[in-house]
């Protein structure tokens, strides 16, 4: 990963964002549902963010396991960066999900399957951020353990939410496969845009973690040479 890649990715994401927003409102057709209508447009952002939430969490989980086994800081940096970015995308998923629910069913929260899964996963990520902050010098190990267990738990959350009949099920928001082609194109464009954005964010977060470490090492070398005493 190089420094130069980040602005390029971010620029591409910015262009993608402008293009998607334009296409969402001019090119993608309105749904025929009389209630949803215009509100359906949030779908392009909601689902794209949900994809990134799961992707970033999986990256975090894998890196955490590798970090635990090797204790190489670079994996820890990557795990931390993807967890924070995943938590951010997760917050957007939940917020847009609530807006969707308000528009479609006139309540702020529904226990829709994918929304519930996102919520449970997001709880793991919030736990991760809390542990990072409050666990002192054991934070990296503990957080890595939480991420590893949380990621392994995703299939269980999936089957649990699928089989549990505790919450009245609301209808699912559109599924990509059943979309008309124009919608599909805009949808995947949006996914690509947010993928670029997600990667750019993770990379810059990794960069800052690395810079922090380098600064510390330089300071240590200064201390060893007796500079600051």
């Amino acid at each position: 990963m190089s420094n130069k890649g980040i602005p390029v990715l971010a620029a591409l994401a910015a262009i993608g964002f402008v293009v998607t927003i334009y296409l969402v409102f001019t090119y993608a057709p309105l749904v025929e549902d009389p209630v949803l209508m215009f509100n359906q447009k949030i779908f392009y952002y909601h689902v794209a963010h949900a994809f990134m939430l799961f992707l970033a969490t999986a990256v975090c989980g894998v890196c955490s396991l590798v970090f635990l086994k090797t204790r190489k800081p670079k994996y820890d940096d990557l795990a931390l960066a993807s967890a924070e970015v995943a938590a951010m995308f997760g917050a957007v998923v939940l917020a847009t999900g609530m807006i969707w629910a308000k528009a479609a069913w006139d309540i702020w929260w529904v226990w829709e399957k994918r929304l519930t899964m996102s919520l449970l996963l997001w709880l793991v990520l919030v736990g991760y951020v809390l542990v990072r902050r409050f666990a002192g010098s054991s934070a990296d190990r503990l957080a890595a353990g939480l991420a590893a267990f949380g990621t392994v738990g995703i299939p269980f959350i999936y089957f649990m939410v699928d089989a549990s009949d505790h919450h009245p099920k609301a209808g699912a928001g559109g599924v990509a496969a059943t979309l008309p082609p124009e919608m599909k194109l805009v949808f995947w464009l949006s996914v690509l845009t947010f993928l670029l954005w997600c990667v750019a964010l993770v990379m810059s977060r990794v960069q800052s973690a690395r810079a922090e470490r380098e600064l510390r090492e330089i300071r240590e070398r200064g201390l060893d040479a007796g500079l600051f005493t």
């Binding site: 010098s137 990296d140 922090e212 240590e220 060893d224």
Partner: peptide, 9 residues
């Protein structure tokens, strides 16, 4: 290193 602190160098 413990977090940011270096215990042994």
């Amino acid at each position: 290193r413990y977090g940011t602190e270096r215990a042994l160098g």
